[in-house]
Design a binder for these strands. Structure first.
Length: 558
RNA sequence: UGUUGAAUAGUGUAACGGUAAGCAUACCAGUCUUUGACACUGGUGGUCCAGGUUCGAAUCCCGGUUCAACAACCA
């Protein structure tokens, strides 16, 4: 019945490898460097790596690529683990590149003994100079001819701490004229007198990415080492080390990283936003981090759905934020509890309703659920808060809300007809007057009146206060990464709008962190971690689609 | 001026020499509606360019164009 879903190119490779007997089972890994929080781009990689193993019955390791002690920290290790779990994936082994420091050191010695590595005393500038350019070959220096014995001795001294940072490096002896810059005697080890978050002060030499990653893959018997496109030029080096070392042949495959409109995906830039306090930490709800999306109210299901929809390919891409928004709406429409909240209130007085009387209205929790998701009680009284934008003194045609003479249904309650309004001395409307039709009560409507519009409301007497944070896109341009100048100049100054005193229906007092809410006609919301007994805080995850807003925008355009 | 990779509706992604080039989203129009939501219906819109091979090309070959990555003691 179900349509055959086509495979992505990596799945095709895996199926061919399995079918051809190259491997009996596959083994992938997710290898973050613990120097920042995971973002939605990592989610793509996580879904791919874990998804591959899940689909083909293999395993996925979580391996921290912690070979640079100066940028890494256990705070990041912890957040990364929490985020992967939250996304719904389980790793087979929790491993660290630093687990392999001894092994890697031995492999380096092996290369020295094979005359394939040497200690170089040049400064980083000298090395850069001698490397040439992509169009000009590099030149060897005097250190390239050191004897095996001398190299062995020097490398041992490097490890023992005999030299200062930068004084010497260990380099692979490959080909200074290779058109691929990565093969021009790449650095394998550098000296860093730095404290490592796991190995402490045991080491003062640390392997470079290229001398650690492939070997770590190999040690773990990773069959398919999947990474992003910028590592394509590293692949010959990845293969070279494995071949010269004669170790398990892991293979590297590359896919295009995720780019999303109106945001940035560079860890370096995200860190900058955090450090310069342009956002409220790594988990600011405007951040594209997993922690930020979680706080914003995104669900793991919605992010997985998104990753599934964007596919996996080798071409550069820039995905519409609207696709991510579609995914969360899709999920939340089915699962969010409906509640009424007035963000920008104006009072509605029902002049023919008895003073001091309260009626208990029943409102279904979720019309998308089979049974309506159950229901809750909503108190109805003579004075209600409604949304200021739901009343107009001079309503345009097709305005299905309130204006003198117009009728609407108050959601889950009565139909009312607007009879007038009052203004203050400045001309601002202070209250809207209406009459209700007693026989139009929701569920028992015998009035025969048909209205086009339904609006939400909250009883003045029963409403509670809450802070509501409305989030919008972090940047005002589609692709801040390619704009001229500083990316921070393109931050959207209106990315956060705080409503201090929104009026929420009383049932929301029971709001929980795990529940998701749809504030009827306003959007999807989630309780924020800043909430306390005294103060309720909601974050807007995403708005509802709003055809009327488009309509009015078009009107303005004319 | 080098190497490597990539070009299919606005965006993303299928089609593996034989489909009227499919799907999703976005957009437009309409139906429905006690959420101007959801749901449903219809629509606009595409193979980077030029040659060649072939009965037949998005797909193979050949030029060209455009974009991206690569010259960190970062990963």
């Amino acid at each position: 019945m179900s349509e055959e879903k086509s495979l992505n190119f990596i799945e095709e490779i895996v199926e061919a490898d399995l079918a051809g007997g190259r491997y009996k089972t596959i083994h992938t890994r997710f290898p973050p460097e613990p120097n920042g929080y995971l973002h939605i781009g990592h989610a793509k990689s996580i879904c791919l790596n874990f998804g591959l193993a899940n689909k083909y019955g293999g395993k996925t390791n979580l391996r921290f690529d912690d070979t640079n002690p100066v940028t890494e920290d256990t705070e990041y290790v912890d957040s990364i683990k929490a985020d992967i779990k939250w996304l719904g994936f389980k790793w087979s082994n929790e491993l660290y590149a630093s687990d392999y420091f001894n092994k890697l050191y031995e492999l380096a010695i092996d290369l020295i003994k094979k005359s394939l590595a040497y200690v170089d005393d040049s400064t980083s500038e000298e090395i850069a100079d001698q490397k040439g350019t992509p169009t000009e070959p590099g030149k060897p220096n005097q250190y390239r001819n050191r004897t095996i014995e001398e190299n062995l001795d020097l490398f041992a001294k490097m490890k023992a701490g005999a030299f200062k940072d930068g004084a010497k490096v260990l380099r692979a002896k490959i080909d200074l004229a290779n058109p691929n810059m990565h093969l021009r005697d790449p650095i394998m080890y550098r000296i860093k007198q730095a404290h490592h978050h796991r190995t402490g002060d045991a080491w003062c030499i640390y392997p470079m990415y290229d001398f650690a990653h492939g070997q770590s893959d190999s040690i773990e018997n990773i069959t398919h080492s999947v990474c992003t496109l910028e590592f394509v030029p590293h692949r010959p080096l990845y293969d070279w080390y494995i071949e010269q070392l004669n170790i398990f042949p892991s293979h590297q495959y590359e896919f295009a990283r995720l780019n999303l409109t109106y945001t940035i995906m560079s860890k370096r830039k995200l860190l900058q936003l955090v450090n310069e306090k342009l956002v409220d930490g790594w988990n600011d709800p405007r951040m594209p981090t997993i922690a930020g999306l979680r706080r914003r109210g995104y669900t793991p299901e919605s992010i997985r759905m998104f990753c599934d929809k964007i596919g996996v390919q080798k071409r550069e891409n820039l995905i519409d934020l609207s696709l991510l928004e579609f995914c969360i709406r899709e999920d939340l429409n089915k699962n969010a509890v409906r509640r009424m909240v007035v963000l920008d209130p104006i009072k509605l007085v029902i002049t023919n309703y008895p003073e001091g009387h309260t009626e208990e209205m029943e409102g279904e929790n979720n019309p998308e659920a089979e049974d309506g998701g159950g229901s809750r009680i909503i108190p109805f009284t003579k004075e209600l808060w409604i949304e200021r934008e739901d009343f107009m003194e001079e309503p345009p045609k097709k305005f299905f809300r309130l204006g003198v003479g117009l009728m609407v249904r108050l959601k889950s309650a009565y139909i009312v007809k607007c009879t007038g309004f009052n203004k203050d001395e400045k001309g601002k409307v202070t209250e809207v007057l209406a009459e209700y039709f007693p026989e139009s009560r929701s569920g028992h409507d015998t009035s025969g009146i048909v209205v086009k519009g339904t609006i939400h409301w909250v009883s003045v007497q029963h409403a509670l206060n809450a802070e509501v944070r409305l989030y919008d896109r972090l940047f005002k341009v589609e692709n801040p990464a390619v704009e001229e100048g500083d990316f921070k100049d393109y931050i959207n100054p209106e990315s956060l709008h705080v409503i201090e005193n929104a009026l929420i229906e009383p049932d929301l007092r029971k709001a929980t962190f795990s529940e998701r809410y749809q504030f009827i006609r306003k959007g999807y919301f989630v309780l924020d971690e800043d909430s306390s007994e005294e103060k309720i805080v909601f974050n807007r995850t995403v708005t509802l689609k709003d055809a009327w807003a488009k309509e009015t925008k078009k009107g303005i355009g004319k």
